[in-house]
Amino acid sequence: MTVVPARSSKWVRPVTSQEPASAIIEIDRVSQVFQTSARKDHVALSDISLTIEEGAFVSILGPSGCGKSTLLYIVGGFVSPTSGSAKIKGHAITGPGPDRGPVFQEFALFPWKTVLGNVIYGPRQQGVRAAEAEAQSRALIKMVGLKGYENFYPKELSGGMKQRVALARTLAYHPEVLLMDEPFGALDAHTRTRLQNDLLNIWERDRKTVLFVTHSVDEAVFLSDKVVMMSKSPGRIREVIDIDLPRPRRRSELLLDPRYQKYVVDIERMFDESDEAGPAS
């Protein structure tokens, strides 16, 4: 029932076994087909192969409907691919697990728990003793800038604060990979910028592997070591771009850096071209 198209696109960069040994996530010829009606199938992802190295900040960038979130859900184990496979540290992904921590655009906090209750949930589930878990959680809440809000309920917080709690809640159970699904997509521009800065600061401390889905070119270039550009209908990888900019990155410096500007312009141009050349969707 599923036809996996041959690798015909000129954009697809084949991923072969010459990848370095530090690969943490390997996505191998993954396709995802949703049956939208009795006669028509929607190919969300077509023949995606991608390797993500340990400690890398990788963004998946693409227009809405290109299946980039679906790809993230497959790595998270929340969705099973129609064909192909995904592996973490060489083990096939068969379901969700604490080694991969999701952060969603919708926050998905537990509204009946306080900020502390949300953050401590993961460690307690993992069997960390109450006192220790609480100390760690309080430290994380402080780190994401929410000291003093420990006993607030999610409904009492703004969108930006909710996303900070969601990040702390996920970091609390020490996942090896952070899976961020347009995490700042629902926030206003100012809050978004502040959260990007804070995320980079936090990330630069322990350099966890991050898989970050976004449709914002600036955001992808600013944050990432590598940007995976996707095209839609069907969702394919059209280009993988290494972002060779120094770290730690400071927004004020980066915005003036011609290399940053060139990455942004080049990527935007590539998307424009594909919009014109691509088939009507």
């Binding site: 998270g76 929340f78 604490p98 999701p102 969603f104 998905a108 537990f110 009946w112 589930q125």
Partner: peptide, 28 residues
Amino acid sequence: EEKMLWSGAAMGLSPAQRLVRIVLPAAL
């Protein structure tokens, strides 16, 4: 919300635990 359940699953909650510890309070 599906993603609330996914968040719980990522923390290691089994389907039965998710029903009691996420669905029940969320639907309360």
